[in-house]
Design a protein around this nucleic acid. Structure first.
Length: 963
DNA sequence: CTCCTTTGTCATAGC
DNA sequence: TCGCTATGACAAAGG
C-alpha cells in the first residue's frame, strides 16, 4: 500500500506536470464545486485517489463486502478510470491550443490597428469605434443586395452551376448601406451579458473561472498593451511587422500552404460527433474547396512567392500585403464575399490553397489586406469586422504553414501576436474595418499597384474598384447570406446556439482537458506563451481549437465574436469562441458542392488538426476517424481530466480490470443484495454452515458473504465443539479469527495488494487489563513467547473478540454475529452461559450486526453518490447531444434561410416589368405560394396577403429574362 | 499538534 | 414484542 500511495502521489505530480506542459488547465475545484458537491466527496474525500487509504481498512472492506466503495479497490477503480481518461484525453489535450489560435486571431486584429503607427492616427481611433459594432452584426449584410462580380456571385450563391449569385442586383447597395451600421456598440454590453451567462454556464460545466476572469485578463491586456505600444513606437507598424515582417518570409512558410488549408478547414471536423454531422461537415468542406478551386483556377496566381515586404504603413502596408500575397488572396476574398457571407474560412482556404501555398505566411499577411479592402468599401463595419476577424484568425492559425516552412518565423510572430492579443482585447477585426476605411486612399493605391502587377486580379476582384468602393461588392455577398443579423431574435438565437456550443465545448474541452489559459505562474511556460509556441509549432492544436469552435458555431458567430472581442472579454476562451464563426460559415456556404480537390484539401485539413505525431501518418481517412473517436469518447466519457489528473497509478490493464470489477459490483444495491443484511445472503449461508458445522465451508461462506471481519475457522469450530464453557483458552482461536480477516483470496484480484499483508486492527485496545493470563504454559521461555504471541494476537483482535475471549465465550464472534436468530439461540442454549456471557454475546451480536449495517449504510451512501454522478454524466451527455442537435438544426435552418434569401434576391433581381425596369426592392417583395408559385407582391399589401390569398399582382416570376 | 478519513459503536427509528 | 436494519452522531485510531 505504501508503494501504491507513493505511486499515486508521484503519478499525480507527473500528470500535473504533463498537463501543465500540454497546456491543460486543471481546475479541480471549479469542477467539483460546480458540478456535484457529492463528487467532491467522492474524488477528494473518502475515496479520493490521493486520500491515503488505511490498510487496516482492508480487512473489513475486503473481508466483509468485497469491494467497498470507499475501499482501496475503489481507489483503484477511480485511478484506472482516470488513467483511461487520461490516455484518451491525450489527443484532447490539444484542444487548448485551439483556443490559443483564437487568441491569435484577436490579437492580430487588435495589434495591427493599435500598433500600426502609420494607420494609427487614422485607423486606431476608427478601429476602436467600430470594434464593438462591427462584430455585432455581420448579419446585416443579409439585406444587402448581391452586387459582386460574377465570381462573387457564384460564391455567394453557393451553387456556381446555378449561377444564383451571378446576377447581382444593382439595388443591393442600398440595402447594404442600411444594414451597415445598424448595430454598432450595442453589442458590447449585450455581449458582455451573454458572455457572463456563458461564463456561468462554463463554470457550471467545470470551466475554470480564470478563463473568464475579466479582471485578470484585463490586467494582462493592459500589460501587453503597454508592450505593444512600446513596440509600436519602436517598430512603427505592428501590422506590417506582424503580418508582413515576420510572416512574410515565403520561402519558409510557403511550402506548407497546401497543408495549411487543412488546418483552417479542419476545425470544422472535430465537431462531427455523429456520422451524419461529419458527413455534413465534410460535404461543406468539400463544397468550400470547390469554390476555392473554382476561384483559384480562374485566377491563377502567378507570383505568390514574390511577396515583397510591404514597406507601406498602415493601409499602405496592408495594401502591400495584399500585393505581396498576390492575386490568390484577392480571389479568395472575392470568393468569400461572393459565396460566403460570413464565412471567413473559405477565405482562408483560398489563401492557403495549394496554389497559393507557396508562401503561406504571405498569404496570411495578405489576407487581411484583402479583407480590409473589402471592408473599406463596405458600409457595414460589423460585417467587415467579422470578415477580417475571421481572416486574421484563420491566417494566424494555420500552424501547418509555419511548421512546414520553418516554424521559427511564424511561431514567433504568432507568439507575439498572441501576447499582444492577450493584452489587447480589442479585436483586429473590429479595428480593421475602420482602419481600412480611413486608409482607403492608400489602399486604393496599393490596389492599383496590385492591379498593374497582377492583371488577373481584376478578373476576380478589381482591387482598385473593390478596395475603395468595395462596399458594393461586399454588400451583395454578405447581405444575402447573412440572415443571422436579421433581427434581435436571430441574434438571441445565435447566442443561444453559442451558449449551447459553449456548453459542449466546456464539457468536452474544459472537462476533458482544460487548457491552461489562465496566467497561472506554475504553468506559465505552458500557459499562453508556451501555448503560443506549442500551438504554432505544432499547429495542430490551434487549428483544432478553431475548428471545433467554428464547427460548432454556425453563422451566429458574429454576435459571438462581438462579445468575445469586446475588451472585457479578452480572455482566451472567448477568443477561441470568436474564431468559431468562420468555420461555420465555411460549412454553410460550401455545403452544396463536392469536389475531388476539396476532398484532398479537407484531408489535409484533417491532418492538420491531428496531433503532430498523428499528422505524420495520418492521411485523409485517419484523421476523421481519430477525431470522431475522440469526440465520441469525449462525449461518452465526460469524466473530466481533472479526475485523471488527480489520480495516477497503475497500468491500464489493472485499471480496466478494476473498472470491470467495480462495474460488476457497482452500486450498493448489488452489494446490499449480497450484504449480510439480506437474508438470502450471509445468513442463509451461515446457517447452512453452522448446521453442517463444517468449519471450512462455513468460514468461507462467511467471508465471502460479506462478513465483516469475523471469521469462523475450523479451529474455531473445533474449539466450539470441544470447548467447554469454561474451557481453557486456546491461543489459536484468536489467531485464526484474526487470520480470517486477511483471507488471501480477497487480495487475489488485486495484484497491487498481494504483497500487502497488513493486519492492522487498530480497534484493539493497547492493553487488556481484563484479559486473563494465558492458560498453563510449559516453560518460562515458551510462556514468554506465547505471551508475546498472544499480545500480538490481542492487537489484532477486536474489542468484542477480546471481551469474548476474556469471558471465555465458547464460540466465535463470527457465529455470534452471523448466525440466524434461531441457530444463534440454539447455540446459546447448547452452551450454558452465564448472564454476563449471554449479555456479552448479545452485545457482540448487536454490535457486529450494527457494524455491518453501518458499513452497508456507508456503502449505500457512496453508491448513491456514484449513481448520482453517473446520472449526472448521462444527463450531461444527453444535454450535449441535444445541444449538438440543436446546433445542427439551427445551422440547417440558417442554411435554408440563406438559400432562400439568395434565391429570393436572385429572382427578384431578374424580375422586370413591362418596360424592362426592375422592380424596386423597397416596394415589392416576393411571396411564395404553397404550390411553389412565386408572386410579386407590393410590400404594402404583403401584410394583408399574409392572411388572405395573394391576389394583388400575381405576376409569375420571369426568370432569366435579364442578362 | 491539528486536521481529516475511516471505522466502530451507540442510540434510535422503522420494518 | 422481538429481531433486524438503517442511519445519524460520536469517538477512536491512524495518516
Amino acid at each position: 500500500m505504501l508503494y501504491l500511495k507513493k505511486n499515486l502521489t508521484e503519478g499525480l505530480i507527473q500528470f500535473a506536470i504533463l498537463l501543465s506542459l500540454i497546456g491543460v488547465r486543471v481546475d479541480v475545484d471549479t469542477y467539483l464545486s460546480s458540478q456535484l458537491p457529492p463528487l467532491r466527496e467522492i474524488f477528494l474525500g473518502p475515496s479520493s485517489a490521493y486520500t491515503q487509504t488505511q490498510f487496516h481498512n482492508l480487512r473489513n472492506t475486503l473481508d466483509g463486502y468485497g469491494l467497498h466503495p470507499k475501499s482501496v479497490d475503489l481507489d483503484y477503480y477511480f485511478t484506472a478510470r482516470r488513467l483511461l481518461n487520461e490516455v484518451r484525453s491525450l489527443d484532447r489535450l490539444q484542444v487548448p491550443s485551439t483556443e490559443l489560435s483564437a487568441w491569435l486571431a484577436y490579437r492580430d486584429t487588435e495589434g495591427p490597428v493599435v500598433s500600426s503607427p502609420q494607420s494609427g492616427s487614422s485607423s486606431s481611433g476608427i478601429a476602436l469605434e467600430n470594434a464593438s459594432g462591427g462584430l455585432e452584426e455581420m448579419g446585416n449584410l443579409e439585406s444587402s443586395a448581391v452586387r459582386g462580380n460574377g465570381t462573387l456571385d457564384q460564391g455567394y450563391g453557393q451553387e456556381p452551376e446555378e449561377n444564383l449569385g451571378a446576377v447581382a442586383p444593382e439595388d443591393s447597395s442600398e440595402l447594404h448601406n442600411d444594414d451597415g451600421d445598424s448595430s454598432s456598440n450595442n453589442l458590447t454590453k449585450e455581449d458582455i451579458d451573454l458572455i457572463d451567462i456563458l461564463w456561468r454556464q462554463d463554470i457550471d460545466l467545470g470551466a475554470g473561472r480564470e478563463v473568464f476572469d475579466y479582471s485578470s485578463r484585463q490586467k494582462e491586456n493592459k500589460v501587453e498593451k503597454r508592450r505593444s505600444e512600446e513596440e509600436e513606437e519602436e517598430g512603427g507598424f505592428t501590422w506590417t511587422r506582424g503580418w508582413g515582417g515576420e510572416l512574410e518570409d515565403p520561402s519558409e512558410e510557403g511550402p506548407s500552404t497546401s497543408s495549411s488549408q487543412g488546418p483552417l478547414l479542419s476545425p470544422l471536423l472535430p465537431q462531427t460527433d455523429s456520422p451524419l454531422d461529419r458527413e455534413q461537415q465534410w460535404q461543406d468542406i468539400m463544397a468550400i474547396m470547390d469554390l476555392q478551386d473554382m476561384e483559384i483556377s480562374e485566377a491563377a496566381d502567378p507570383s505568390f512567392n514574390t511577396s515583397s515586404s510591404s514597406s507601406g504603413v498602415d493601409t499602405g502596408s496592408l495594401a502591400d500585403f495584399s500585393f505581396s500575397t498576390h492575386t490568390p488572396i484577392n480571389q479568395d476574398v472575392s470568393l468569400h464575399q461572393a459565396s460566403l457571407p460570413s464565412c471567413s474560412q473559405d477565405f482562408q482556404g483560398g489563401f492557403f490553397s495549394p496554389e497559393l501555398g507557396s508562401c503561406p505566411m504571405e498569404a496570411v499577411g495578405t489576407a487581411p489586406p484583402a479583407t480590409l479592402l473589402r471592408l473599406s468599401s463596405s458600409n457595414s463595419s460589423d460585417v467587415d469586422s467579422t470578415f477580417e476577424a475571421t481572416n486574421l484568425t484563420d491566417v494566424l492559425l494555420p500552424p501547418r504553414l509555419n511548421g512546414s516552412s520553418n516554424g521559427t518565423g511564424l511561431p514567433d510572430l504568432l507568439t507575439g501576436l498572441l501576447e499582444e492579443a492577450l493584452l489587447d482585447e480589442i479585436s483586429l477585426l473590429d479595428l480593421l474595418p475602420s482602419l481600412v476605411d480611413q486608409t482607403s486612399p492608400s489602399l486604393q493605391e496599393c490596389l492599383r499597384l496590385l492591379e498593374a502587377t497582377f492583371p488577373f486580379v481584376e478578373e476576380t476582384e478589381d482591387p482598385s474598384e473593390e478596395g475603395p468602393s468595395t462596399s458594393s461588392s461586399q454588400g451583395p455577398l454578405l447581405s444575402p447570406l447573412l440572415p443571422q443579423t436579421d433581427s434581435p431574435l436571430d441574434r438571441e438565437q445565435q447566442w443561444q446556439d453559442i451558449m449551447a456550443i459553449m456548453d459542449l465545448q466546456d464539457m468536452e474541452i474544459s472537462e476533458a482537458a482544460d487548457p491552461s489559459f489562465n496566467t497561472s505562474s506554475s504553468s506559465s511556460g505552458v500557459d499562453t506563451g508556451s501555448l503560443a509556441d506549442f500551438s504554432f509549432s505544432t499547429h495542430t492544436p490551434i487549428n483544432q481549437d478553431v475548428s471545433l469552435h467554428q464547427a460548432s458555431l454556425p453563422s451566429c458567430s458574429q454576435d459571438f465574436q462581438g462579445g468575445f472581442f469586446s475588451p472585457e472579454l479578452g480572455s482566451c476562451p472567448m477568443e477561441a469562441v470568436g474564431t468559431a464563426p468562420p468555420a461555420t460559415l465555411l460549412r454553410l456556404s460550401s455545403s452544396n458542392s463536392s469536389d475531388v480537390d476539396s476532398t484532398f484539401e479537407a484531408t489535409n485539413l484533417t491532418d492538420v488538426l491531428l496531433p503532430p505525431r498523428l499528422n505524420g501518418s495520418s492521411n485523409g481517412t485517419g484523421l476523421p476517424d481519430l477525431l470522431t473517436g475522440l469526440l465520441e469518447e469525449a462525449l461518452l466519457d465526460e469524466i473530466s481530466l481533472l479526475d485523471l489528473a488527480l489520480v495516477e497509478g497503475f497500468n491500464p490493464a489493472q485499471a480496466s480490470r478494476l473498472r470491470e470489477e467495480f462495474d460488476s459490483d457497482s452500486g450498493l444495491s448489488l452489494d446490499s443484495s449480497r450484504s449480510p443484511a439480506s437474508p438470502s445472503g450471509s445468513e442463509t449461508s451461515s446457517s447452512s454452515s453452522s448446521s453442517s458445522s463444517s468449519s471450512s465451508s462455513s468460514s468461507s461462506s462467511f467471508s465471502e458473504e460479506g462478513a465483516v471481519g469475523y471469521s469462523t475457522d475450523s479451529e474455531a469450530v473445533d474449539f466450539e465443539e470441544g470447548g467447554a464453557v469454561g474451557g481453557c483458552y486456546q491461543p489459536e482461536f484468536s489467531k485464526f479469527c484474526r487470520m480470517s480477516y486477511q483471507d488471501p483470496s480477497r487480495f487475489s484480484h488485486l495484484p497491487q495488494l498481494e504483497h500487502v499483508a497488513h493486519n492492522h486492527t487498530y480497534n484493539l485496545a493497547p492493553s487488556h487489563p481484563d484479559l486473563p493470563p494465558a492458560p498453563g504454559k510449559k516453560g518460562a521461555g515458551r510462556e514468554k513467547q506465547q505471551q508475546q504471541q498472544q499480545d500480538l494476537l490481542d492487537k489484532q483482535q477486536s474489542r468484542d473478540e477480546r471481551r469474548a475471549r476474556a469471558m471465555k465465550i465458547p464460540f466465535s464472534n463470527e457465529k455470534i454475529v452471523h448466525l440466524p436468530v434461531e441457530e444463534f439461540n440454539e447455540l446459546l442454549s447448547k452452551h450454558r452461559l452465564s448472564e454476563a456471557q449471554l449479555a456479552l454475546v448479545r452485545d457482540i451480536r448487536r454490535r457486529g450486526k450494527n457494524k455491518m449495517a453501518a458499513q452497508n449504510c456507508r456503502k449505500r451512501k457512496l453508491d448513491t453518490i456514484l449513481n448520482l454522478e453517473q446520472g449526472v454524466e448521462a444527463l450531461r451527455r444527453d444535454k450535449a447531444r441535444l445541444l449538438r442537435e440543436k446546433v445542427e438544426f439551427v445551422r440547417s435552418l440558417r442554411q435554408m434561410k440563406q438559400k432562400m434569401q439568395s434565391l429570393h434576391q436572385e429572382v427578384f433581381s431578374r424580375l422586370r416589368d413591362e418596360s424592362g425596369r426592375p422592380y424596386p426592392a423597397g416596394e415589392f417583395s416576393l411571396q411564395y405560394g404553397s404550390d411553389g408559385s412565386v408572386l410579386l407582391v407590393p410590400r404594402r399589401l404583403r401584410d394583408e396577403q399574409q392572411q388572405q390569398q395573394p391576389s394583388r399582382k400575381p405576376e409569375k416570376k420571369q426568370k432569366d429574362k435579364k442578362k
